[in-house]
């Protein structure tokens, strides 16, 4: 089944059209990487999919349920958007952890407050996730006491603690220096091996190639090319894609 289905998505910022008729489906267990130059619309697509930006046209379904529809040219969002928000998690470029909460509270707050799940149970799960990430000794630390890589791994755990059907990553390593990038990519790779459904906007070409089932190249608000990583990277069809990839092959 499709976890996510986006149909004919349109988005403008004033006169600038950032998404033009984008359609995209993501299957259960699939890992999709979106690459492309800055301003190509890839982050906007993610922000529209997670309702941080509102679409100007098109449809979004999660798990076969309609979250966004366009009726008579008017975009209509589902009444209970929070029910849809439970289906996905989003990992930000700048982590956006809550600085006044400990690591553990960062992880537990949403499951306990939003999902109203029992505290003890959530605590056990979160500690288990931290152990998996090698961060169990940081449970009582505050975000400011962690390195960027550790903060990003905590923010991945925060998203996982909500048990989403699909996880979005918005340039998860762009705010990290190369030394710390590796530890975050390793975690995402591990999630891919566990068949977590993921959509990753990234500038890490080698990583996208290694981890994805499908790679999408976007430019000017459209999907220029998509396919298996070995095809997009090895047997590139579009001149625009080739041009873009050349910058990364030094």
């Amino acid at each position: 089944m499709n976890v996510l289905r986006i149909q004919n998505a349109e988005k403008h910022f004033g006169d600038l059209q950032v998404l033009r008729d984008i359609s995209l489906t993501v299957d259960h267990g699939e890992v999709v990487s979106i690459i492309g130059p800055s301003g190509s619309g890839k982050s906007t697509l993610l922000r529209c999919a997670t309702f941080l930006e509102t679409l100007d046209g098109g449809e979004i379904d999660y798990m076969g349920e309609a979250a966004v529809r366009t009726e008579d040219g008017k975009v209509v969002y589902a009444k209970d958007l929070n029910a849809f928000r439970r289906q996905f998690g989003l990992v930000f470029q700048n982590f956006n952890l809550f600085p006044h909460y400990t690591v553990l509270k960062n992880l537990m707050d949403a499951p306990v407050t939003v999902l109203k799940r029992p505290k003890a149970e959530v605590r056990g799960e979160c500690m288990e996730l931290l152990r998996k990430m090698g961060l169990e000794d940081k449970a009582d630390a505050y975000p400011c006491q962690l390195s960027g890589g550790q903060q990003q791994r905590v923010s991945i755990v925060r998203a996982l603690a909500m048990k989403p059907q699909i996880l979005f990553f918005d340039e998860p390593t762009s705010a990290l220096d190369p030394e710390l990038t590796g530890e975050v990519l390793k975690v995402i790779k591990q999630l891919a091996e566990e068949k977590m459904t993921m959509v990753i906007v990234t500038h890490e070409m080698a990583f996208a190639r290694a981890v994805s089932d499908r790679v999408i190249f976007m430019d000017g608000g459209v999907i220029v090319e998509q396919g298996k990583p070995e095809d997009v990277f090895g047997d590139t069809q579009q001149e625009r894609t080739r041009q873009f990839l050349r910058n990364y092959q030094q």
Binding site: R85, F92, N94, N96, A110, T113, R158, M162
Partner: peptide, 15 residues
Amino acid sequence: IPVGQYEAAQVLGFT
């Protein structure tokens, strides 16, 4: 307060 704090809370489903 950075807008990212609001966005993180919104995505997590906080009212």
